[in-house]
Design a protein around this nucleic acid. Structure first.
Lengths: 231, 231
DNA sequence: TCAAAAGTGTTTACGTTACACCCATGC
DNA sequence: GCATGGGTGTAACGTAAACACTTTTGA
């Protein structure tokens, strides 16, 4: 069949803003760009879309290449298309953000990209419009996490409530009252208490919890207000 | 400078989901597709991105072409990239939704596209993946409108509270208690009462209000809860 | 026994909901 | 004078916020 006439095709890339949490700090996974231009500058992990791939699939592939992880929480963020955003050739980029358990990643480290985790407040200048993307991703996560229980994606299967609270505090960059936090979280019914404690960060130890995946799935679409309302 | 090697460029289009409100029904503006394939089938208004345009600019241009309107509320919805979504040639589509005052449009009607307004519940089958886009746009509007005062974009400069309420009822497809609605809306401080009444829909008449644009802008980012929480 | 983090309840304030009647007007 | 839609108030309820002390245990 005929093609559309007089149109100019462009490259389409996918860039991933990858968040991880180590139980203490919220971090971003960055790579050293391997090709010119801006070779060896810090960059988001990205790649061009394949011929038989859809956008989500490309994002999954890119994440797999960098981290070795399947089944990662991925969400489309925004498409960026300023004509000169890539100086070499016109490229539309569809940005995705990912939330991963940083410890899982560590086991399957793939180092060909010189990837490094940066604390959010210590993220270096990035190439092209990647800084904008990171800011947008952070805003979106704050938005989403205020309404849906997405932050569990950043935690290991077993986690403690103090860990969870610290994560929320990092995301919103503000302190949370622990009594109110515990009440809200337990009232949500999303957590299942485990018999064991994590003794690594206190003498007394904190009970582990697991996420009730049934309820998590069921409640995901219901708007929750798990924390602070973002201003 | 060299180009990226071994990559396959694709077409990038922008499709607009255009919502309008006539004071009674929430409607969608559709066109009869002018070119093959699927010629003469109902479709969203769209177009390919121009060489010196960014994505937002392309959406604005497309909207201007169809409606004659500048300065329309436009928001990027999602990028769609299934390989075969357009049977002719691989095309990534970035969908935008627009909220316009349907009466403004009527004055500047541009009929070369055989555009027609459809009540939301009477939208016909659309080409390609445009049905999905409409559903996604509707969900996003519900989401956004629950948190931000965006629905004013659908109303004329002067509007009555009953009109506004009917609009919310359309968007959420559920009845709203008028006493509570009035209280919330007036408490928001977003409305400025006008001395005149609209007598067109009742004997008593309903006061016109204007939007306080200063406050609207200021409050836009603060999360509001203007209506029903969507389930 | 002391330091350090985990866990537990209560009170108050505020926002949301539910609910019913009077008002203004044109016919 | 009556039908039609517009506008007003209050009480009950539930959720969120503020707030301080006891518990556990390893050093």
């Amino acid at each position: 069949m005929a093609k559309y006439l007089n149109q100019n095709p462009v490259l389409v890339a996918v860039d991933c803003i990858i968040f991880g949490y180590d139980g203490e700090n919220l971090k971003l996974l960055l790579i050293k760009r391997a090709i010119e231009p801006e070779k060896n500058k810090w960059s988001l992990m990205g790649g061009f879309i394949g011929e038989n791939e859809n956008l989500d699939g490309a994002a999954q592939r890119i994440l797999l290449e960098l981290t070795g992880l399947h089944d990662v929480y991925l969400e489309q963020l925004h498409a960026y298309g300023t004509p000169d955003r890539d100086p070499i050739e016109r490229t539309i980029s569809v940005a995705y953000f990912a939330l991963i358990d940083i410890n899982k990643y560590n086991k399957q480290l793939n180092d060909q990209y010189h990837a490094e985790w940066f604390k959010l407040k210590e993220v270096p200048k990035l190439i092209f419009d990647h800084d904008r993307m990171v800011v947008a991703a952070m805003n979106k996560i704050r938005y989403q996490a205020a309404l849906h229980p997405i932050l569990f994606e950043l935690l290991p299967k077993k986690f403690t409530i103090p860990q969870l609270q610290a994560l929320y505090e990092q995301v919103y960059d503000s302190p949370i009252d622990n009594r109110n936090f515990i009440r809200k979280i337990t009232a949500s019914g999303l957590l299942i208490k485990q018999p064991e404690k994590d003794k690594s960060s206190s003498r007394r130890g904190a009970f582990y919890f697991k996420l009730d995946k049934q309820k998590h799935k069921a409640q995901f679409q219901s708007f929750l207000s798990l924390t602070i309302k973002p201003k």
